Computed example of a mutant assay.
Amino acid sequence: MSNLSHAKIVPRPSKTRGAANHGWLDTKHTFSFGGWYNPKYMNYGSLRVLNEDRVQPGEGFPTHHHQNAEIFSYILSGELTHRDSMQKKGAESEDKNKFFRLHRGDVQFTTGGRGISHSEYNEHDKDWVHFLQIWVLPHKRNLPPIYHTSTFSDEEKRKGFVTIITPLKAGPNATLEEEKAAVPTKEGTIPIHSDLVFSAGIIPTGNSFSYTIGGGDLVTSKTDRKVYVHFPETKGGKAKLRLDGREDAILKEGDGAYVSHVNAGDVLKFESVGDAEAEVVVIDGSNDE
């Protein structure tokens, strides 16, 4: 039975995503990206890119430039090595915000701001890497570029939704000092220059988790949030999700869902109704970006 009768939930089947297999890269695009363009799927609020990528060993994305986007990678399996333009191979830093070999549970975040270059490679000798790459439009252009890398455990995600990214506490009018301090709204999370919360959970079979829209009081815009649910392909099709108790909102792996007409404090129920635990991410943005 629905707990959010006022909410509009529109499933997005995996088959409607853009898809390309380049041999070394198997990629699926929720929104228009690269060589795949569909005017129906340009963005959802401030969410601009959601790619599910698999990269073979020894391959990756060479040094490339980013500007005026908040970009983060969520590692599902395998290993992804991130290097910025100042950290060349063979001259690695111990500072994981500059160089880091990412594994499952790690999230690497980049504020492109006025411009920054980095590379992402799978340097493992035999395993493919499977990860989500997500781009969000910031609330201000030409910000100071910065990196953050943090780890969020599967153990905690199996207990309930783990909050990973929250808005910069100082907000759109942050000073340079506040930008450098990079204090998030919720301690222990990664700060983003957007009124957005990113969370993840791993729901055991037969169990349900509740997600509170806006993280409760973590966002500024409280009404008419734009929430996107993505259900990564991690269990070979064995996992399934039901949203808000609705029979017309059952998701298979690779599917997503647009959730609208919801407000901060509303509670969205997720049920794992398949034969394997269900890993899911929630991108909870405002309606005014």
Rank of each mutant, 00 (worst) to 15 (best):
P184F: 05
N207W: 02
D224H: 08
P167A: 03
N3P: 09
L241H: 11
T151P: 04
E178S: 04
P145Q: 10
V267F: 03
G160R: 13
E156D: 13
E155L: 01
F270A: 10
R12A: 15
L47I: 03
I164E: 11
Q87F: 01
F152E: 00
D244I: 03
R225N: 14
G112I: 05
T63C: 05
K126F: 05
D95A: 04
L176I: 01
Q87L: 01
P39L: 03
G265T: 05
T111L: 12
F109V: 02
R12Y: 15
S85H: 14
S272Q: 09
Q133F: 02
L80V: 02
I164T: 02
A69M: 15
E187F: 06
E187T: 08
V229H: 08
R141A: 10
P167W: 07
K222W: 02
N207G: 01
K222A: 03
L50D: 11
L137W: 14
E59V: 02
I202F: 07
L4E: 02
G35S: 07
H66A: 12
G60H: 10
K159E: 09
M86T: 15
G237F: 04
L241W: 05
L196N: 12
H22P: 05
Y258R: 13
V280I: 07
Y41G: 07
P167N: 11
R158Y: 05
D248T: 00
S32P: 12
T220C: 03
V267P: 06
G214S: 05
T16Y: 08
L176R: 09
G214P: 04
G115P: 01
E94N: 14
D275I: 11
Q87E: 14
Q56A: 07
K89W: 13
V280P: 10
E253R: 06
R141F: 14
R246E: 05
G206K: 01
S210Q: 14
I164H: 06
G237V: 01
S85G: 14
F152N: 09
D154W: 11
M42Q: 13
L76V: 13
W128M: 13
S46C: 10
G188A: 12
D195I: 03
P11I: 05
P57N: 11
N122L: 07
N21R: 06
T151V: 00
N263K: 12
K140N: 05
D255F: 14
F270I: 06
A276D: 14
Y41C: 10
Y147R: 06
T189A: 10
S153N: 08
I203K: 09
P232R: 00
F33C: 04
D53W: 15
I9A: 08
K15M: 07
D26V: 01
P39V: 02
T149C: 14
K8R: 15
H66P: 15
E52A: 03
G245Y: 00
A257D: 00
N207E: 15
T212Y: 04
V280A: 06
F198Q: 02
D284I: 00
A181N: 07
D84V: 00
